[in-house]
């Protein structure tokens, strides 16, 4: 039997708002999950940073208050979950390939990301990911997201839609 996705399929009752799009999203580990997403955007909290940390495999080990709030999940649900818990179907595969390739080269990654909330809504961020090196060893990654400009969000939504159409 195929490996089970650690995250449950989304159900209509999880979703805020009546209209939604439905996807089967497959992740790097080969597992899949049903995703329902809406056009409801949650604004970035003013003056704050959204912070999370993962282990080297991308499993969440820390999430700050803003992260928890914006994701719609509880802290308990987030810790130990794979970071693709936020993966939005509108994000192109290439975006995350760039992230992991850049980190593998030992470099800092920056990018605009549309994230999925537990309730099917979304929020845009400008993210920076750095490796956490302790005593010369990679122990995980830290991602810090800040508020993106509307102009950049619109430009990236456009580029991502084109990339998605080619996938």
């Amino acid at each position: 039997m195929a490996k089970q996705c650690p995250l449950p399929d989304m159900q209509p009752e999880d979703v805020k708002g009546a209209a939604y799009r439905e996807y089967i999203q497959t992740f790097f580990d080969g597992t899949s999950r049903k995703i329902l997403c809406t056009e409801i955007e949650t604004p970035f909290p003013e003056g704050k940073l959204i912070v999370s940390r993962t282990d080297p495999e991308g499993i969440i080990t820390h999430a700050n208050q803003s992260f928890v709030y914006m994701s719609g999940w509880t802290e308990q649900e987030l810790i130990g979950a794979p970071h693709y818990i936020l993966r939005h179907p509108d994000m192109p595969i290439l975006g995350f390939k760039g992230l992991w390739d850049t980190l593998a080269e030992g470099k800092k990654w920056h990018g605009y990301v549309k994230n999925l909330r537990k309730d099917g809504g979304y929020y845009w961020v400008y993210a920076t990911v750095v490796a956490n090196i302790r005593d010369g060893k990679l122990v995980g990654y830290t991602s810090v997201r800040r508020k993106p400009s509307r102009k950049q969000v619109l430009a990236h939504a456009d580029v991502y839609a084109k990339l998605r159409a080619e996938e």
Binding site: L49, R53, T128, V129, V130, N132, R134, T142
Partner: peptide, 11 residues
């Protein structure tokens, strides 16, 4: 301290 430094580094 390392956590704060990692965070500063992203900024």
């Amino acid at each position: 301290t390392e956590f704060m430094i990692d965070l500063m580094e992203t900024l």
